[in-house]
Simulated scan of single mutants.
Amino acid sequence: MEVQGKIKMIDETKTYGNNGFRKREVVITTEEQYPQHLMIEFVQDKTDLLNNFQVGQNVKIQINLRGREWTNPQGETKYFNSIQGWRIENIDQSVSNDMPPVPPADAFEPANDFNEEDHDDLPF
């Protein structure tokens, strides 16, 4: 799956436990009728992927949905969901590299000598 949006916040990398589990969170705001603020976590070596990004950039993030079950000491079962990113790319950069530049409108000359009868090649 993937999500697109503008980076609103990038958190610092945090380390947890004795094994050195690393996690870094990023919040993106989607651009739709009702914008959503989505918190996406990058874990372990994927935390470094966020080093080249900054607030305000438009990005596309490849994600996996994660869910887990937990039973509290009172015996109640709780469920938690998370969005885990594994790839991120700058949309603005990919658009400019994939598509040739569009010339400005004033770079074209108007067709003043156009005669519709000469160019009508429709069969009806």
Rank of each mutant, 00 (worst) to 15 (best):
M1Y: 06
M1W: 04
E2M: 11
Q4M: 15
G5T: 02
G5N: 00
K6G: 06
K8V: 14
M9Q: 13
M9E: 13
M9V: 13
I10H: 08
D11P: 06
K14N: 10
Y16N: 02
G17M: 05
F21S: 03
R22V: 01
K23I: 12
K23M: 14
E25R: 03
V26R: 01
V26F: 05
I28Q: 00
T30Q: 04
E32S: 12
E32D: 13
Y34D: 07
Y34K: 06
H37P: 03
H37V: 05
I40M: 04
E41Q: 11
F42N: 01
D45E: 14
K46N: 12
T47I: 04
D48Q: 14
L49D: 03
Q54D: 08
V55H: 04
Q57C: 06
Q62C: 05
Q62I: 04
L65G: 05
G67C: 03
G67P: 00
R68L: 08
W70G: 02
T71L: 07
N72W: 10
E76L: 12
T77P: 05
N81L: 09
S82Y: 03
I83V: 12
I83A: 02
Q84C: 10
D92W: 06
Q93V: 04
N97R: 00
D98F: 08
M99Q: 08
P101Y: 03
V102P: 00
P104K: 04
A107W: 07
E109Y: 12
P110D: 15
P110M: 14
N112E: 15
F114M: 14
F114L: 15
E117T: 13
D118H: 10
D121A: 09
P123A: 06
F124L: 05
F124D: 09
